[in-house]
Design a protein around this nucleic acid. Structure first.
Lengths: 334, 334
DNA sequence: TCAAGATGCTAATACGCATTAGTCGCCGCT
DNA sequence: AGCGGCGACTAATGCGTATTAGCATCTTGA
């Protein structure tokens, strides 16, 4: 036996309190710019309380164009069944920051499907005040449309596309990578090998840049699959290599491959060989990608864009170095 | 140099195509009840495509239609930093089903904060076409309001509150628990002890009901903290107990406590003692709570409620039994 | 030839709120 | 007396869509 009565609206309050709907809006909206007799204000508040008035969020949004909703476009599922979820910390940061700023989040589904579905999902993006985009993909046409119409969006991860007009929060891989190499150099390593993932991406280029900047003589090897043979590692060692630096990514495949090969070759780390990862699992020598912080900053930047207060729409965050146990002085080759 | 053009609306399409806004709405809305010349319809669609028209979801929703947005109210953070996240599989199911039904999700933030904030968050719930609620908490007043005004909502987990008017998707703990006990009985166990969590909840009562239904002579013990002593377990064994059944919950504290105590007592499982959990970690003897399925069903039920097609607004799902390695025949006490 | 019905569309309005541009009465001042 | 100004409010409008009632115009059939 549902009562099925309507929710009270401002008009109801107005009728009972004997004022206009506008008066109700003014009082409940807490506007100080408009004067209202203390008595009337009190009466309105009283009636509102009595009726259990709750502003209708949709109407509110339609009227003043802010919904306090931020979009989340993940290009994949936001709650993957897969345990090792690299985005999780970012999302966690996003949620925390959004909560503290009073913003709710819209999760767009169908972002991982075929291109046609993806595109309709990108359109739906507009129902939020602005949208966060995750990951490496940039569907140029639809994203360009968003950017051009001034729709606030922030990518997580550096994006040079569209002539550099895409706002983003990235990590400063160049500096962080350079620092890792500098540390190796200062420990005495002179023959260092850098192992890249097969994949290309700005974050990948940035790491390489940092590596070569700090240690131009570094030899670069590109993995062509998810595996690396123990023999390959042995031959590097024979060439005098004393340290391996591995690209770290979402999937961490390169690190796993290298680690497996090194173990298979029966080498001790860092006794026989130092090993560093550029943005790897927590605790491993190299540096850490500040995931949570990226999420938080992305939300802050997005809000700035929404409120037209953005100062720097493209920011790179500092990655804290990790000493770890995988790096040590080179084995004396004498 | 942003173009800063407004998003096109129906009125823009109407002007260009030389028809009324209503005509545009009719055509784009796919209404068959209203006749429209094939030519006009084509023209409108063409213009819409050209302008890249996207319906304004908020306006759509205000105008008594659907926005294809489902709310998610978690009473805690949706992306906890904590690794062991019991809700994750549910959320994963929700997301998958929502995606396949073309629904996006709104994550309400601030749902774990102080009561006042929680209440404003519950209000915001109306932004969506309907909302999923997670967990044990039922803030009676605001939820009653939602239910009474006919706002579609579905709880995940059985909820007897509000005179049983809350729609939910739960798990059939009674049957599942009874089956576990029946198995123990059929293996020959006669002296069984049931270990409950300190906490009370419908799901907790259900399990107890099932236990006593299948094996009325079962002794019930209630934990009063997160720990259990090895001595307690030893004394049970001395009393002739051959099997322990443990309540399983979100946190899994009871199971961990019992497992620790049994190990500390130096007992082998199931050699000395059989051990079963009512809804525990995957693979452990007892039964499994179909998390993913609950998520999926909840979404389906919510959609049914939204479209007024709900047949059974309260459903309990079957929990698959898990044989596992922790249950065996009782030790011959001769 | 004219009523009845079909066809193709539009005008008007609702949804619930925020906001802007007033309106109205009254007081103080010259 | 007349004017400015202020305090306290309201009327009107917009936000972008969906829906309903209804209006021309065109076919038909008798």
């Amino acid at each position: 036996m549902t009562t099925e009565r309507r929710m009270p609206r401002q008009a109801d309050i107005a009728r009972i309190a004997g004022v206009s709907q506008a008066a109700v809006s003014v009082v409940l909206g807490g506007k100080q710019t408009i004067r209202m007799a203390e008595e009337t204000r009190a009466r309105i508040l009283e009636v509102a309380e009595e009726l259990g008035y709750v502003p209708h969020p949709v109407a509110k949004r339609l009227a003043h164009s802010r919904s306090n909703l931020l979009g989340l476009y993940t290009f994949r599922t936001a709650f993957p069944t897969n345990e090792a979820d690299i985005y999780h910390p970012i999302l966690s940061g996003v949620e925390a920051e959004a909560a503290s700023l009073g913003q709710d989040l819209i999760l767009f589904t169908g972002t991982s499907g075929p291109e046609a579905r993806q595109e309709t999902a990108i359109r739906r993006t507009r129902m939020a005040d602005g949208c966060l985009f995750f990951g490496r993909q940039v569907p140029e046409a639809p994203v360009a449309r968003l950017v051009e119409t001034g729709f606030p969006l922030v990518y997580i991860g550096r994006r040079p596309e569209l002539g550099g007009r895409i706002p983003y929060i990235g990590a400063d891989y160049v500096t962080a990578s350079a620092q890792v190499l500098e540390r190796l150099l200062s420990l005495g390593h002179r023959n260092i090998r850098y192992v890249r993932e097969p994949d290309e991406a700005p974050s990948s280029e940035d790491r390489l840049l940092g590596v070569l900047q700090a240690a131009p003589s570094t030899q670069v090897v590109r993995l062509d699959g998810p595996d690396l043979s123990a023999d390959a590692v042995r031959s590097w060692l024979a060439d005098g290599v004393t340290a391996l630096v591995v690209e770290g990514t979402d999937t961490g495949t390169a690190y796993r491959a290298v680690r497996a090969a090194v173990d298979a070759a029966g080498l001790s780390v860092p006794g026989d060989l130092s090993l560093a990862v550029l943005g790897g699992p927590p605790g491993v020598s190299g540096f850490e990608v500040p995931m949570q912080e990226m999420g938080r900053h992305a939300v802050r930047l997005l809000i700035e864009l929404i409120t037209d207060k953005a100062t720097t729409p493209q920011q790179l965050l500092w990655c804290p170095p990790v000493a770890g146990r995988e790096v040590g002085p080179p084995r004396s080759t004498e």
